[in-house]
Write a protein that binds this DNA or RNA. Structure first.
Length: 558
RNA sequence: GCGCCCAUAGCUCAAUUGGAUAGAGCAUCUGACUACGAAUCAGAAGGUUGGAGGUUCGACUCCUUCUGGGCGCACCA
């Protein structure tokens, strides 16, 4: 999907450009990039810049002197500025014409689906890998955090002009899959009246017994559990299906599923090993094959192939490297991986492997978004999240308790790199007070205006409407808040931090609630009503866009 | 012992990436339903941003160091 040109007239951009022009005229360095920001305190104006302070050194003048010269140099009316003043150590505060500001809403009405989009990615391809759970059990809450994060990051990248693919990597080879098969086998034995111990690192959850029952029902010829390969295939298929259903319920869709096992069957693992050996970064020691990852910043070298005494298998990171080679070869010159922080040591290893291959892959490839662990609290006690023990809270549990939207929002409200306490009881008891409802309610209220006024929202137009009457402080605040969205999307995408959108959503909802409560849309003099309908429509569409980016629904009534 | 992440109101978290008086929600207290939904709004109270130094016009943010927590540091994945 190619993005179109989004050269929307943006009052902040035009103001920034004018400030930069004036600064250059005063002799500022060519690379001057004035930072515009919305002051916390509205009495400081609509926009402020600190450029005079940053120019103090290069120009050898006092900040306030520079600020005065800037005001004199600028063509203020052309960028909608009605007042400009100098404050504090040298801040320049601008106040904008109400109508000029409000006209910034026009693009929202004109192209609602494009609102907030930009073309910084220029259509380049990026693969976002997330969840990537082993098919050995249901998804746990950590996967939920990854699913919410990965999906939102993917959307943000798509909004900023990247061609995005969501990918799920299945570790369907190796030790843990063998343990799955043996765990199922143990339960099949049990059904046949025999006993067989579940191996160390095996799975004890209820779901294993269920799979065993279904296996026996569908494979009457193997009621004694002799066919380990068949049980493995059956178990993997069953768990993949269950995970798919969970993700579907969560509203997350993947474009591609990549199977680790295919890397072995199509020879890519062997090929990668040969290439690494040829690179000269490997050596043998104690019968094992090592990769000299210390050449690339690791603190010790890593085993690629275990010694014969230990089974002679490849360690997990070899297929990982082979897998990331395929990402590069499939044309993704940007790759983002969303993983739990417990995997952070693999980042160095995978990158080292890719560098050792010396095939032109950039040093920072792939990019990692690591999120800290989720602690689940229940009845005042910590529930240990352990796939191997089988006793853990699943994504499904959370969705059933508090709803899809609330779970998503909860995971997206905060930065990924802070630990997260998911209090199950709290999430249950306060589901009605979850902030997600606050944002959705603001949207529903805007819809309510059109419903009660019997106005077709889609037909609302600013044509022939004087938007300058939207001059109440609550209206100006709401308008400015809405107009922040495109910049917010860009910065959230830049930093791969969806929580910034969650914050924007709550602040915009707050501004919308305040405006709604203070001022009436329907039943006012016609000029007022028409202008406010435009604002209500823009708010409805703006909130809807914010909700959509985070994968949340935008209900018309609640 | 080494590496990465974190520490902000009683609790859960923000802070436009170095900007002006550090902000929300929950909990507590006080008000507002006869106008588009009170799932809301208006207000009060709550802070030495873990401690100590440093960098500069300016620090929650950057540097050093300590303290306290999480996660890694396998011929496990």
């Amino acid at each position: 999907m190619r993005t179109r040109e989004f050269a929307f007239v943006n009052h902040a951009e035009s103001l920034r450009t004018e400030v930069a022009r004036a600064a250059l005229a005063l002799g500022a360095p060519q690379d001057v990039t004035p930072v515009l920001e919305r002051p916390r305190d509205p009495t400081f104006g609509d926009w402020a810049t600190n450029v005079a302070m940053t120019l103090a050194k290069p120009l050898g003048k006092k900040p306030r002197e520079i600020a005065e010269a800037l005001i004199a140099e600028m063509d203020l009316p052309s960028v909608g500025v009605t007042h400009a003043e100098i404050a504090g150590p040298g801040f320049l505060n601008f106040r904008l014409d109400a109508g000029f500001l409000a006209r910034g809403l026009l693009p929202i009405l004109a192209h609602p689906a494009d609102w907030g989009r930009s073309d910084v990615g220029k259509g380049a391809r990026v693969v976002v890998e997330f969840v990537s759970a082993n098919p050995t059990g249901p998804l746990h809450v950590g996967h939920g955090r990854q699913a919410a994060l990965g999906d939102a990051i993917s959307t943000l990248l798509a909004y900023t002009g990247w061609t995005v693919e969501r990918e799920f990597y299945y570790n369907d080879a190796g030790v843990q899959i063998a343990n799955l098969a043996k765990s199922v086998q143990a339960r099949v034995y049990e059904l046949a009246g025999q006993t067989l111990a579940i191996p160390d690192g095996g799975y004890h959850g209820e779901y294993i017994a269920e799979i065993a029952q279904r296996y026996v029902a569908e494979h009457p010829a193997d009621a004694v559990g002799a066919d380990l390969i068949a049980m493995q295939a059956f178990g993997v298929a069953a768990l993949r299906h269950e995970q798919d259903l969970d993700l579907q319920t969560f509203g997350v869709k993947f474009d591609t599923y990549y199977l680790e096992s295919s890397l072995y069957s199509d020879g890519r693992v062997d090929k990668t090993v040969s290439a690494l050996c040829a690179s000269g970064h490997t050596y043998e020691k104690d019968g094992a094959l090592f990769l000299r990852t210390t050449d690339f910043g690791d603190d010790k070298d890593r085993v690629m192939k275990k010694s014969a005494a230990k089974g002679g298998d490849y360690t997990y990171f070899v297929p990982d490297v082979a897998y990331h080679v395929t990402k590069w070869e499939r044309g993704y010159h940007r790759a983002v991986n969303v993983q739990g922080a417990d995997h952070h040591s693999t980042t160095t290893r995978v990158r080292a492997g890719l560098q050792a291959l010396n095939m032109g892959i950039p040093i920072g490839y792939p990019e990692y978004v690591l999120h800290q662990m989720v602690t689940v609290m229940k009845s005042g006690e910590e529930m240990k999240i352990s796939k191997r023990a089988g006793a853990y809270v699943t994504v499904r549990d959370l969705i059933d308790e508090v709803g899809r939207d609330a779970v998503r929002f909860f995971f997206l409200m905060r930065k990924g790199d802070s630990q997260l306490v998911f209090d199950v009881d709290l999430a249950r008891s306060q589901s009605e007070e979850n902030p997600v409802y606050y944002a959705q309610m603001a949207h529903a209220r805007m819809c309510g205006i059109f419903r009660v006024g019997d106005v077709d929202a889609a037909s609302v137009s600013a044509h022939g409407v004087d938007l300058a009457v939207l001059s109440e402080p609550a209206e100006q605040e709401l308008i400015k808040q809405l107009l922040d969205f495109p910049a917010m999307v860009r910065s959230a995408a830049d930093h791969l931090e969806p929580h910034r959108i969650a914050g924007w959503l709550l602040e915009t909802a707050r501004a919308a609630h305040t405006w709604y409560h203070k001022h009436h849309v329907l039943g006012e003099p016609e000029a007022i009503t028409r202008a406010r309908l435009v604002l209500a429509r823009a708010t409805q569409l703006g909130l809807s866009a914010g909700l959509r980016v985070l994968g949340l629904s935008a209900p018309e009534r609640m």
